[in-house]
């Protein structure tokens, strides 16, 4: 027993050749955000406060695909989504289609605490944000030059793909994954447990590069990208559609509840058996203070710490990373 925390900055095809100028600021951000979370836990802040705090920091950091630094829709706009869940009460809040709120995760928490609903989206979510007086900015605040370039590349790649796709196609093309960039699937998330076993999870994202306007991914969907109950707290990242189909976050908890698996076994099962390779990364903590961070992608920006002194910050599998 003891507190534990894990956070991620997205899983995907992160090339091992990622240049130091792209790798180092992200590693530094992971360390910094982990430290903020650890300090908050040590100061006896509730896990719900801790995951919100850490995800706010990750949103404010332009190197990750959430808040400032969010990727762009096919119209060059930003549509962010976020979700937060408290394990004890299973209270939860979610937002989608947010374009002017500095911290989407805090708006999700307000939906949870100040409305009779769980999930608000688009104009209604923005109107609620104004009513609550949260910090709002011009949409341009979120748009980075790097993401304008990413959208350009994605549009070019898409055009190529469509040109060469056979006209008669049974299944629609998968959500486009670009192999040439870092953080394309980046989403941010944090899970935490305190020494009394209280759990919480939070996830936030700008979505997918070149996504259709109005597209909703797995992040704001309870049970898919985000889930917490009295056993564990889970945040998933990767290819939205695959995670939705697998109800990945809830299934980690369901495997613990119905099959008696440990946290590590349950998360590994979902990553290995429920979601196709190359599509998902998961961070999870259990009520007893365990932590696990499996992924079946090339890498996942991730960090964790537990009360007994264990800590890890990484991008690729440890076996690769330590070569």
């Amino acid at each position: 027993m003891g507190w534990a925390i894990a956070l991620h900055g997205g899983a995907g095809d992160i090339p091992l050749s990622l240049p130091p100028e792209r790798r180092e600021p992200r590693e530094a951000a992971l360390r910094y955000c982990l430290q903020i979370g650890v300090s908050a836990l040590k100061a006896n802040r509730s896990p719900l406060d801790v995951v919100e705090l850490v995800v706010c920091e990750l949103e404010n950091n332009p190197h990750f695909n959430a808040g400032r630094g969010s990727v762009l829709t096919n119209e060059g706009t930003v549509e962010m989504e976020a979700c937060i869940m408290d394990g004890n009460t299973k209270n939860c809040g979610a937002v989608s289609g947010v374009s002017t709120v500095v911290n989407a995760i805090s708006l999700a928490r307000l939906v949870m605490e100040k409305t009779p609903h769980i999930y608000l989206a688009f104009d209604g979510a923005e109107a609620f944000a104004r009513e609550q007086g949260v910090k709002m900015v011009d949409e341009n605040h979120f748009i980075t030059p790097e993401n304008i370039e990413r959208l350009k590349q994605a549009k070019e790649a898409n055009r190529v793909q469509i040109d060469y796709t056979q006209p008669i196609q049974k299944d629609p093309p998968d959500e486009t994954v670009l192999a040439n960039g870092d953080s394309q699937l980046g989403t941010v998330g944090c899970v935490a447990v305190d020494s009394e076993g209280n759990l919480a999870a939070a996830t936030s994202t700008g979505g997918l590069v070149n996504k259709m306007v109005g597209r909703i991914g797995d992040t704001p969907i309870i049970g898919s990208g985000t889930y917490a109950n009295n056993l564990c707290a889970v945040s998933a990242t990767g290819k939205g559609e695959a995670i939705i189909r697998a109800t990945a976050a809830r299934d980690v908890a369901a495997l613990m509840e119905y099959k008696g698996l440990s946290l590590e076994e349950a998360a590994a099962y979902v990553v290995e058996k429920c979601v196709p390779k190359g599509n998902v990364g998961i961070i999870a903590v259990s009520a007893s203070g365990e932590v696990t961070m499996p992924f079946n992608t090339t890498g996942m920006f991730r960090a964790c710490a537990t009360e007994d002194g264990f800590s890890e910050v990484g991008i690729w599998p440890l076996s690769v990373q330590n070569l």
């Binding site: 093309p173 959500e175 259709m212 597209r215 969907i221 939205g240 559609e241």
Partner: peptide
């Protein structure tokens, strides 16, 4: 569509 969920004006 390549997505599984679309909302509002989109």
């Amino acid at each position: 569509s390549p997505h599984s969920y679309l909302a509002f004006s989109g």
